[in-house]
Amino acid sequence: MEINSWHETGHVPVTILQLKGDLTSEDELVQKAQAAFQDGARNIVLDLSHVPYISSAGLRAIHMVYMLLRSADPVDEEQAARGIARDTYKSPHLKLVKPTKNGLKALSTAGYDIFLDIFDTNPQAVASFK
């Protein structure tokens, strides 16, 4: 898997991780996200438009990135508790862009689409961070 990363600024600084290839292991994505996190990234977009397949290991990687970003924001935890009860919670720090048909199938089968916003384009995702 190839992962390209770059920074964009909307309302807040955002790191884009663009994945290319099947997301069938967790190591590469988690390592890339951890490196970005150590460099100060607190808002990440995962561009999944070039990911033909996402396996359960890939889902685990997305889960780990979500938890990593969550760990830096205690306020998010309170908002999540309230929002989840009302079915309105979406992660404020991790957004997804344009998963392929099979990628979306994996995400929705696991229920990840309930908690993670999905956008058609990177600019839309970047603009959504507050």
Binding site: S55, Y66, R70, A80, F115
Partner: peptide, 11 residues
């Protein structure tokens, strides 16, 4: 919610 789920186990 994701934070209450174990990592993995989705296969």
């Amino acid at each position: 919610p994701l934070e209450e789920r174990p990592l993995g186990g989705l296969g």
